[in-house]
Structure formats: structure tokens, C-alpha cells
Amino acid sequence: HDTTVHINGLRIEVHGASEEILKWIEEAARRGVEAEEIKRWVEEALK
């Protein structure tokens, strides 16, 4: 999927993410993980 995830006011563009990654992002956000940190993880995961 190409999608934009909104976390604590930060937009994260996610290209080619699976449902699993999207669920993981939402879970991390709920746990209060910094949005910048999530963004870094997602970029690494999608390389």
C-alpha cells in the first residue's frame, strides 16, 4: 500500500508497506514511540 500515517501530528509517507507494517506503526504510536523514531524504522524496513 501507499499510505500516509499520521502520528502525533507528524505525517509519515509509507510506500509499499504491508498491513503488518501499518499495524506495527499504529501499535508503536499507541505505546508513545517518538514519531521520528518510527519513521526511521519504517524507512529501514522498506529498504
Score class of each variant (00 low, 15 high):
E27H: 06
E43G: 04
A35S: 07
H1M: 12
E37F: 11
H15F: 10
I21Q: 05
I7M: 02
K39H: 07
E19S: 10
D2W: 13
E13I: 13
I38K: 00
E36S: 11
A17E: 03
W24D: 01
I7G: 05
H15W: 09
E34K: 13
E13H: 09
R11V: 15
V5R: 05
R30Q: 13
E34M: 11
E27M: 04
K47P: 06
R30K: 15
D2N: 15
I12D: 02
E37Y: 10
T3E: 13
A17P: 04
A29P: 01
V5E: 04
T3C: 08
L10S: 11
S18E: 04
R11C: 15
H1I: 12
K47R: 14
V14Q: 02
A35Y: 12
R40V: 04
V5M: 06
A35M: 09
R31W: 05
T3N: 13
L46D: 02
R11Y: 15
W24H: 06
K23W: 06
T4W: 00
A45N: 09
E13N: 14
G16C: 06
S18I: 07
G9P: 01
V42M: 03
H15G: 14
E26S: 04
G32A: 04
R31K: 12
I38N: 00
H1P: 12
G32N: 05
A35E: 07
L46I: 12
E19W: 09
K47T: 11
I12L: 04
R31L: 12
H15T: 14
E19H: 12
R40K: 12
A29D: 08
A45Q: 13
E20S: 09
I7F: 01
A35T: 09
A17T: 04
N8T: 03
K23G: 07
H15D: 11
W41V: 12
H15Q: 13
E27P: 00
I25S: 00
G9I: 01
G9D: 14
I12V: 08
E34R: 12
V14H: 02
W24Y: 11
A17L: 10
L22H: 04
E37A: 11
T3H: 14
V33C: 09
E26F: 07
I7T: 01
A17I: 07
A29F: 14
V42A: 04
H15K: 14
E26G: 03
W24L: 07
I25R: 00
L46N: 06
S18G: 09
A29V: 15
V14A: 05
W41F: 13
G32T: 01
E43R: 01
K47F: 03
G16S: 07
H1S: 14
K47N: 13
A17V: 11
I7D: 09
A28Q: 09
V5D: 05
T4L: 06
H15M: 11
R40A: 10
G16A: 07
V42S: 01
E44L: 09
R31Y: 05
W24F: 10
E27K: 05
T4E: 11
T3F: 14
I25G: 01
A45W: 14
W24P: 00
D2I: 15
L46V: 08
R40I: 08
N8R: 02
A29G: 06
V33H: 04
K47C: 11
N8P: 13
T3R: 12
T3W: 05
E34G: 12
I25C: 02
E43K: 03
A28C: 06
A17Y: 04
V5I: 15
E27D: 14
G16F: 07
E36F: 06
E26H: 06
V42P: 00
E37W: 08
T3Y: 11
L22G: 02
E44C: 10
A29R: 09
V42R: 00
I12E: 02
A28I: 05
L46G: 03
H15N: 12
S18Y: 05
E34P: 14
R40D: 05
R31Q: 11
I21A: 02
I25P: 00
H6D: 14
E36L: 10
E13A: 08
V33E: 06
I21V: 11
G16Q: 06
S18M: 06
I25Q: 00
I25L: 09
T4I: 15
I38G: 00
W24N: 02
E27F: 01
E20W: 07
I25E: 00
A45F: 12
K23P: 00
V33N: 02
S18P: 09
N8W: 00
E43N: 03
A29H: 11
H1K: 13
G9T: 01
W24I: 05
G9M: 01
A29N: 10
E44P: 00
R11S: 15
V14D: 03
R30P: 04
H1Y: 13
E34Q: 14
E13V: 14
E34A: 13
V42H: 00
E19F: 10
H6R: 09
N8D: 15
H15E: 13
T4C: 11
W24E: 04
H6P: 06
G32V: 02
V42N: 00
K47Q: 12
L46S: 04
L10Q: 13
A45P: 00
